[in-house]
Amino acid sequence: MTPAPALSVEGLSVEFRTRSGAVRALENVSFRVAKGETVALVGESGSGKSVTAYAVMGILDPAGRVTAGRAMLGDLDLLAATPKELANVRGRKIAMIFQNPRTALNPIRPVGRQIADVLICHGNVSRRAAPAQAVEMLRAVGITDPARRAKAYPFEMSGGMCQRVMIAIALAAKPTLLIADEPTTGLDVTTQAVIMDLINDLAKELGMATIFITHDLALAGQRSARIVVMHAGHVVENAPTADLFANPRHPYTAELIAATPDSAASLDELAAIAGSLPDLRRADLPPCRYSERCPRKIAACAQPLPLAAPDAAHFVACWNPLPAQVVVAPTVSAA
């Protein structure tokens, strides 16, 4: 049996009101994250990865509106929760690591104080004990000489160190769900590897569920048990990592893999993906938002997409998917 999910998102739809009409940024997005599992949301920019995370956290831009769906964290529906309930959950049960640590941290407060703030607010730590514990947190995320670094301001630290501080803040109250929104974009590959190790190790230690948002398919493959591929606000495929790479069923996933530089021996082998994302303001968006770029388009594509069964092992939203391979490699368990 699959363990009870830490977070279950069902049928999430989000709209943004703009001057030129409503942008249907998310439509019917469903996925689950089990306890202790790392799930990656992968897609190009504009695919709705971050909007999904923001909707779950309840920090959507004021122009955005959740039009349908549920996001169950245990018994609490995050999308229907009152601001007070949400405030109770955020920081304690769900935490988020943002893309750019330098802008996400408070520039005029020493990092140790910023961690202590979270500990006092969410971690049931007394004011007196917080500074010392903040230093301990800094040590836990691998910052050398933490006592001295706790007094540093974000601008005095490198990008990798700032990201470690962000991680320390996110994990201060030992949340059950961590959302990491492109945590290593803008960092060097060597730093990226270390930071991802840190997130993985801490997640394992605390038994945390992790949603890892990235545009780097190769990185997602290395760091997550399951990958959810998004395109233009739809979940197009959702499968265990090994299964997804060995046997991508959605044409978009297959093309995304073929476009990843790592997969090719020469530049000519790389295949570009034809077309671009459709304009999400259009009233006549086809049910499958990929169909206008899709090489495998058939007549049935005009019908509403197959719906995601939230617990399907390998879900694909396509009427004409690539054939499943007969011999399926034993899927790597989510643990």
């Binding site: 991802m196 398919l217 190769a218 493959g221 893999i257 790592d262």
Partner: peptide, 17 residues
């Protein structure tokens, strides 16, 4: 440190700055 599509992460890491 480069993530590869079909390999798991290797553990050769640089420490420090």
């Amino acid at each position: 440190a480069v993530p590869r599509l079909h390999e798991t992460a290797s553990r050769l890491r640089l420490t420090g700055e």
